[in-house]
């Protein structure tokens, strides 16, 4: 009664066995959609879109760099929201989603940094510059690594998840402060503030592949988090009856494709 303001399906989904089946059903479709969107986006970006009149073909890194950068921030936000739910309501599923989001977010942050570096070398002539945006992204990577490291430093995984969730929330406050302080620092030192996107707005023939790639990375994230959460729930609930039934249903797989 006290929780009647929460829709029923959230309660249903919050139960690990229900979520396990739900995630198992949705994951292949989400991944298929992500692959399809990725194929369309990359075809549009790598083949159909014309070369940039200033950067030539080097700008084509944008189709993975910018969606990865967006994902690195979006996943952090998602992780923080899940972490807040985990801290306030102690929902096991929220803890799992917050903690399993961190490696995906770190992966996208790493991709952003590496592709940005590969883009920067032909454009600026250097692999790395202490530009405000790059520095903020590097700090974001350290935030992710801190969350992952703290989570794994605990014996008790649920306690680790709660501590790391709090760290993620501290990071939410910290990230804008880092961003603005780095900008201030950059103007102070007359650093190289290179604007990769130029002043002109992006052409539609380049914009639509970018947006489709952003959609593909979002779909991929949802597919990946469902798979990771499934695995995590299995190991967290390994003593429970539903896991035992599930294991007994499936034949022992010694060799064969990982599922």
């Amino acid at each position: 009664m006290s929780r009647s303001y929460i829709p029923h399906w959230i309660h249903w989904l919050g139960s690990p066995p229900n979520f396990y089946r739900f995630a198992g059903a949705w994951r292949p479709w989400l991944m298929a959609a992500a692959l399809a969107a990725g194929a369309i986006g990359l075809y549009g970006g790598l083949v159909l879109a014309p070369p940039d009149y200033q950067q030539g073909d080097a700008y084509r890194i944008i189709f993975i760099h910018v969606p990865s950068a967006w994902m690195s921030l979006a996943i952090y936000a998602g992780m923080a929201v899940a972490g807040l739910i985990a801290l306030v309501w102690r929902v096991k599923l929220a803890e799992v989603i917050a903690m399993e989001s961190a490696p995906i977010g770190a992966a996208f942050t790493l991709v952003t940094l590496v592709t940005g570096s590969l883009w920067g070398k032909p454009m600026w002539g250097t692999w790395w510059t202490w530009d405000a945006r790059l520095t903020s992204e590097l700090v974001l990577l350290f935030l992710y690594l801190g969350v992952i490291g703290l989570y794994h430093a605990f014996e008790d995984r649920r306690r680790g998840a709660r501590a790391a969730s709090l760290l993620a929330l501290v990071g939410v406050v910290n990230l804008p402060i880092v961003h603005y302080s780095v900008q201030w620092w950059n103007t102070l030192h007359q650093g190289s503030t290179v604007d990769l996107f130029g002043r002109s707005s992006i052409a539609p023939s380049m914009l639509w592949p970018l947006l489709v790639m952003a959609l593909a990375t979002h779909l991929y994230y949802f597919a990946s988090i469902l798979g990771r959460a499934r695995t995590d729930l299995l190991s967290l609930e390994s003593g429970k009856q539903w896991v035992r039934e599930l294991v007994e249903e499936q034949p022992a797989q010694r060799q064969g494709a990982p599922t």
């Binding site: 080097a58 993975i64 992966a107 070398k121 798979g227 695995t231 299995l234 990982p258």
Partner: peptide, 25 residues
Amino acid sequence: YVWPAYAVFFAVLAWDWLAPSFRKR
């Protein structure tokens, strides 16, 4: 520059996709 960037993108995401699968197995 372009192809290594794409290679890194797909390699990192492939790791992200396969690591939990192996863990689950």
